[in-house]
């Protein structure tokens, strides 16, 4: 079965607009894990992220009458949580960066190098190599890859979320994939399945 999560979410949104609190609870249940995961990438601060998510859902509820403009819920929630988390981090650290709202942020991702990717006998050595390639990715590459391969956003959504052009999104993805492939072809990581 292949339910499109976004379609389900859009149905929930319709019910939220008609004032159904249970639909709001359901939406939080289905989306909490994804947006929590995204928020935690900016700071390893569990309570700030949870507070940010509360804020986002409360404001979704308060502004539900104008919520019909939302096309992709996942995208909308991720964007709202990102803004809220960065805003709260800025307030907490009291950085006087009032003019520059697009403050530089960090984005941390650890990848699981599973045995199914690498054959057992040379696991140690190869996984080390792969880890190195992944660790060398820039903050932006990490975020683009994360949004594409984990959150499954499309290029237009990623470009809007990160405030970069669609071409930059493509370039960042392309570079990252090429690096990974080069590493494989140079080593003999790639084996026929």
């Amino acid at each position: 079965m292949n339910f499109d999560q976004n379609e389900i979410d859009l149905l929930l949104l319709e019910r939220i607009q008609s004032g159904d609190e249970h639909a709001l609870a359901s939406l939080m249940r289905t989306e909490f894990r994804s947006i929590y995961d995204y928020g935690m990438r900016f700071c390893n601060c569990d309570s700030t992220v949870r507070d940010a998510i509360q804020e986002v859902f409360i404001s979704l509820w308060q502004k539900r009458s104008s919520a019909s403009s939302i096309v992709s819920i996942r995208y909308w929630l991720l964007a709202a949580v990102k803004n809220q988390v960065l805003k709260m981090m800025r307030n907490e650290s009291r950085i006087s960066n009032l003019e520059d709202s697009s403050l530089e942020y960090s984005f941390t991702v650890d990848y699981s190098i599973e045995e199914k990717i690498i054959t057992k006998q040379d696991y140690q050595e190869r996984s080390h190599l792969l880890q190195e390639v992944l660790a060398q990715l820039s903050v932006r590459q990490k975020e683009v890859i994360y949004l594409r391969f984990y959150q499954e956003l499309d290029a237009a959504e990623i470009s809007a979320l990160m405030q970069i052009s669609a071409q930059s999104v493509y370039n960042l993805l392309h570079e990252s994939i090429q690096r990974l492939r080069k590493c494989w072809h140079a080593g003999v990581l790639l084996r026929a399945v």
């Binding site: 909490f32 509360q54 650890d110 990848y111 994360y146 984990y150």
Partner: peptide, 25 residues
């Protein structure tokens, strides 16, 4: 392999916590 390599280790989060957040909301 590309797709698998780019999967992040997820942030730990218990089911209970999600329910707590839902009831808080």
């Amino acid at each position: 392999k590309i797709v698998e390599s780019f999967q992040p280790i997820e942030m730990p989060l218990s089911e209970v916590m999600v329910e707590v957040e839902v009831s808080k909301l």
